[in-house]
Structure formats: C-alpha cells, structure tokens
C-alpha cells in the first residue's frame, strides 16, 4: 500500500504538469470513474468517495476539503509485551514515510518523530521497550502554549503543527511532557510532498494523517512485524482498539497530568 503511494508521489506536482495531454487524460479518466465512486488523482492512487471505508483497513476515507469528524477520536494501543527488543521497524517506517531522513552530526539536533525507549524497572531490573511518540492528547499542552495557534488539535483528535504559521519559538517543545517534538535545525531538500517539513519549524508524529485520510493505517502500525500496535477509533465501542482497551489494563503515560492521551500502552 505504501509502495503505491511512493510510486505516485513524484507524479503529483511535477510530471503531470509537464505533460498536459497525460494530465487531461487522467482528468477525463477521473471523471469517468467518479461515477463508480472513485477518483483517480495519479496513477496507482485513488481517493474514494466520502463515507466509504478502505476495504483493507475498514477506516473511513476523507475527501479533500472535507472537515475531519468530531465523532471520531483516532488512537493507538501499543502492546509492549509484543514489542521486540532492539526492533526499530516502526521508527524506520515512520521516518521513511514522512521523509525524516536527514543525518546530523549532533543527534540531539536531529528530528525524531518516534523513538524506541528502553525501560528498566528499578525494583526488579526487568527490561521492556516501547515506541514513544506524540501522545495526541485531548488536552494538549503544546496547543495551549502555542502563541500563533500553529499547534492544533484536529477534530478527530490528531495533534498537528501548521507549518505555515509555526514561528519556531519552541514553546511547545518546552511544554510537551513526552519530549515528542523536534525543531528542524537545518534547511531540507527532497521532501515528501504529502508531508511538508521545513527549517525552523517544529514537528512531531502526525499519526500519518495523510494516510489516515486515505483510509490507511499509520506507517508504524502497518510495518510492525510483531503486530504490537493497534490503530483505530477510540470513540467507536465496536472498534478493535476500543474492545481491547475495555478488556485489558492499559496505561496512559503521565496519567497524573490528566491529558487524556490518544496513545495507550498495554503491559507497562
């Protein structure tokens, strides 16, 4: 699924514009298939009509320009009993998907949208690992402190940074209890067109919002070889994530802060 997206990306801004005949053909084809409930926006990439669910994931798609739904609260459940020691597939998947590929001499200046954290219980020395990323709080401190409103929570619970109005003050980084945000410390090139990033702006996990809107799961969830991560609608009692949260003990990290996070952990 992600392969098809990557094949499609270069077509979006560049090649389609340089070949008007091909562009017209694609538009005509789009009109033709729209009646069937599909619109082709590039070879291999389709947007389905509003309200339809992705056949593979069951996640409803969202038409461009359509507002996100308040009825939905996207969330993640991470079963750390399944999270394999030393495995960083989720980190690699995230950074590949979102174009976070720059290498910096000082790793502390590099962006990390998701990281593997190793925990050692001080009482018994038991070691566990888990992926840590933006927890997509219902009451996000980053949104509260942002002077321009660039840090925002979408109606469906995804916490994002508007790259057009972020001024790079880093107040959100000071406010985040999870160290989930990074500043882009250098000029960037060859970005993923679907995931704009830029020097001087703050960024963090978007839950792969561009994939969710297409009815796909976040890249980390899809690429986890152990199936340790479950993505879904926390507001839907019939979703798998809701059922599992109802059936097992799960943890909200820093629950003392009452942030009502969208990412839950099982096994801490």
């Amino acid at each position: 699924m992600s392969d098809s997206k990557h094949n499609a990306q270069p077509e979006l801004p560049g090649k389609a514009q340089t070949n008007p005949a091909r562009r017209a053909f694609i538009a005509a084809a789009g009109v033709g298939v729209a009646g069937l409930g599909f619109t082709a926006i590039a070879p291999g990439l389709h947007l389905m009509a509003v309200g339809e669910a992705n056949a593979a994931t069951g996640i409803a798609t969202r038409k461009p320009g359509e507002a996100a739904s308040r009825a939905v609260r996207w969330g993640l459940l991470v079963d750390i009993n399944k999270c394999a020691p030393g495995c960083t597939k989720c980190v690699e998947a995230c950074h590949t998907e979102n174009g976070v590929t720059e290498k910096l001499a000082d790793p502390r200046q590099a962006s990390q949208w998701i990281r593997k954290v190793e925990l050692t219980d001080r009482r018994n020395g038991k070691k566990t690992e888990l992926p840590m990323m933006c927890q997509h709080c219902a009451n996000p401190p980053c949104v509260d402190v942002c002077p321009t409103g660039a840090s925002m929570k979408r109606a469906d619970g995804i916490v994002l940074v508007d790259r057009h109005s972020c001024i790079g003050c880093r107040y959100c980084m000071m406010a985040c209890p999870y160290k989930a945000r990074s500043l882009v410390h250098l000029p960037l090139t060859e970005q993923n067109p679907l995931v704009p990033r830029g020097q001087g702006c703050v960024e963090s996990c978007t839950l792969c919002v561009h994939r969710i809107d297409r009815g796909q799961q976040p890249a980390c969830v899809e690429q986890c070889p152990e199936g340790a991560m479950t993505f879904g609608d926390l507001n839907d009692p019939s979703s798998e994530i809701s059922k599992r949260i109802a059936a097992t003990h799960t943890t909200q990290v820093r629950s003392d802060l009452r942030l009502d996070v969208g990412v839950r952990y099982q096994g801490i």
């Binding site: 949104v143 509260d144 402190v145 942002c146 002077p147 321009t148 409103g149 660039a150 109005s165 972020c166 001024i167 790079g168 003050c169 880093r170 107040y171 500043l183 882009v184 020097q199 001087g200 702006c201 703050v202």
Partner: peptide
Amino acid sequence: DLGRADRIIVAATHFNPTSVFGWNV
C-alpha cells in the same frame, strides 16, 4: 532567535488566548 524569524508578522496577526507567549505579544 525564532526558527522562522521571517514570520514575526504571523505572531502579530494570529492570537492564541491560552498562550502566555500570546499574552506577551
């Protein structure tokens, strides 16, 4: 020192009432 010092006008035209930085603007 802002990451995007060129966007200072954004700080002047976008106001978030819950932000202490916003109050300081």
